[in-house]
Write a protein that binds this DNA or RNA. Sequence first.
DNA 1: GATTATATACGACGAAGATCGTTGACATAC
DNA 2: GTATGTCAACGATCTTCGTCGTATATAATC
Lengths: 133, 133
Amino acid sequence: MAKSTKPFGNAPLPTEAELAILQILWKLGPSTVREVHTALQSRRTGYTTALKQMQVMTEKGLLTRSERYRSHVYEARIPQEQTQLLLTRNLLQRAFDGSAKDLVLGALSAQPVSASELAEIRKMLDRFEKRNS
Amino acid sequence: MAKSTKPFGNAPLPTEAELAILQILWKLGPSTVREVHTALQSRRTGYTTALKQMQVMTEKGLLTRSERYRSHVYEARIPQEQTQLLLTRNLLQRAFDGSAKDLVLGALSAQPVSASELAEIRKMLDRFEKRNS
DNA sequence: GATTATATACGACGAAGATCGTTGACATAC
DNA sequence: GTATGTCAACGATCTTCGTCGTATATAATC
């Protein structure tokens, strides 16, 4: 029993290093280990480290792997938005006692937010307001 | 060298279990190990586990301890808002590439948000808009 | 077909986190 | 003053994460 075939749902939240790899794959699309590794200059880590990690991630259901070619091609199994949602929900529960308002406050305080970004956020609020009515 | 006396700044981000304990202390105020442990029913963990964890947290600078009484009294050393801010900033960098907008989107999508809460969020936006002008 | 370059597979290790058992100190009740 | 209960201290274990070294497969080149 492993090799889960479910969509996701059972995939665990990615760890720190796993998230870094996912970021690359979301940006580049399906990639080989080498491509991911070189895109990962920030972390001064070896090639086999990235390889191992991606293998583990595949077992966990975070990635899928195509072995058709000599160099296996990996792909994120879960879309970025889905993962962001889960991570946010997780933080919301763990640190904010479920208060979305406080989390938004945190997000805005965490770094300077441009005026245009504030405008976009307002638009989102409008959309949510309609949805709830 | 340990026993840091700085305000915080050097205190690390709390781990999962540590955050759960901090939540209790923020809510109850200064408390003994037993009080924290009983307030922590969710985690089916033993008394000594909580004790050990709080001792470690004290070494790390996350808690302070008063030994005046027979039962030591622990207190969160870092205010809740400060920790929330750091955690949010952390998530923002790790998973959202710094896009506050996407994080807000995540926060609103993570769970149903009431109309009154939306209104409060709007007020916050107003405040931020003024601040940036 | 021997050499070289590049992949993957496998296993190990160290650090950190979480959990708990045991021990010894210290009260309080009998 | 002995027994009982509560507490802090300490050390041990187990797990997860991140990291890498080594071995093995395979393709390309000479």
